[in-house]
């Protein structure tokens, strides 16, 4: 019994290693009305992916193609692999995936590729068994974009600092570095607070709020905080409101619409930035269709969607495509997202 299990595992392992990168072509011989394009999110109950499905439905409506979303009921790598297995059995033509755990999906995605199914991924830049991976943006560019929003609110002058979840978090620090580099190149009137150039919020609303209060007490000249973690902007905004600094001190950063609604509406927070999962869902379907049609995928790829009009390969990669798919959430559009 045990031996049999080991043999099975070994076989799976061999399959997993042997199958990647087969048939990068993917052009379908079927007429396009028969294509089935499935998007598998991490978790179909999560608000983020409920929003992504809106993009998939929009794509199906715009193109008349059979595109749909089907995901596990909770964030679980094994359940997600099962969903993909079922889709392969149903004979879909393309699978778009946002993996829970990219490594855990390698075998099943390898199997899909072997069967000639088009596989594209999102938020999985190290996935082996995929044709292409879409990332909404380049980290440094996104940081520069947050900085643009802060600079606009601060009138392009004054002292500012940056806040990250943890100083060890790779993407937060890449955003902050990108923002600081952009400020140095573009906004000479602004200065980075040398004594505290990077503050930690521990991805915690309460800590972001406490750290901001300390900063405002210690550095009365501080005019802005660039947030990166989604907890930074709302936490700092609370401190600004309570301390009576509205209109004098500004914050920008990543933020979910619902969490920031109050502060955006009363003007404490000028703008929150985000990438819209709806657009990512739309872009994934659009990319899968291009491959099915046999169109070449090259640098400068246009998926005919704002933020994804001119996608570039990440340096040194032939699979990872970067867009500039971020959006600004402000007073005017905050109610239109539904997440």
């Amino acid at each position: 019994m045990k031996k049999g299990l080991v043999k099975l595992l070994a076989l799976l392992l061999v399959l997993a290693v042997a199958t990647p990168l087969v048939a990068q072509v993917g052009k379908s011989s079927k007429p396009s009305k028969d294509w089935k394009i499935a998007l598998v999110p991490k978790d179909s109950t999560n608000a983020w992916f409920v929003r992504m499905e809106v993009g998939v439905k929009q794509y199906a409506k715009d193109t008349g193609l059979n595109a749909f979303q089907k995901g596990p009921a909770k964030t679980d790598a094994a359940m997600q692999a099962q969903v993909i297995q079922d889709l392969i059995a149903q004979g879909v033509d393309a699978i778009c995936v946002v993996p829970v755990d990219p490594a855990a999906l390698e075998p099943v995605l390898g199997e899909a590729l072997k069967k000639g199914i088009v596989v594209v991924t999102h938020e999985a830049s190290f996935q082996e068994n995929t044709m292409y991976d879409i990332e909404a943006f380049n980290n440094a560019d996104y940081g520069a974009f947050i900085m643009d929003n802060l600079a606009k609110a601060m009138g392009q002058k004054g002292l500012y600092t940056t806040m990250v979840g943890h100083v060890t978090n790779a993407s937060h620090n890449e955003w902050a570095d990108g923002g600081v580099a952009h400020q140095k190149a573009t906004y000479p009137g602004m200065t980075l607070l040398a004594a505290e150039p990077r503050v930690e919020s521990e991805d915690n609303l309460e800590k972001a709020y406490e750290r901001a209060k300390e900063l405002f007490k210690k550095y009365p000249n501080l005019k802005g905080i660039m947030g990166t973690s989604s907890k930074d902007a709302p936490g700092v905004a609370r401190a600004i409101e309570e301390m009576g600094l509205k209109g004098k001190v500004f914050v920008s950063g990543t933020g979910l619409p619902n969490e920031n609604k109050t502060f955006l509406k009363d003007g404490t927070l000028a703008a929150a930035t985000l990438w819209d999962p709806k657009d990512a869902g739309y872009a994934l379907c659009s990319l899968a269709t291009k491959i099915l049609k046999g169109e070449p995928i090259a640098d400068g790829l246009n998926l005919k969607l704002k933020g994804y009009e001119s996608m570039h390969f990440a340096p040194g990669s032939k699979k990872v495509l970067l867009g500039s798919g971020w959006i600004v959430i402000d007073k005017k559009n905050v109610d239109s997202f539904g997440f």
Binding site: A195, V199, E200, E214
Partner: peptide, 11 residues
């Protein structure tokens, strides 16, 4: 709540 007030860098 006072490390910033004392002036100790985050690191």
């Amino acid at each position: 709540n006072s490390l910033i007030l004392i002036g100790i860098p985050t690191y």
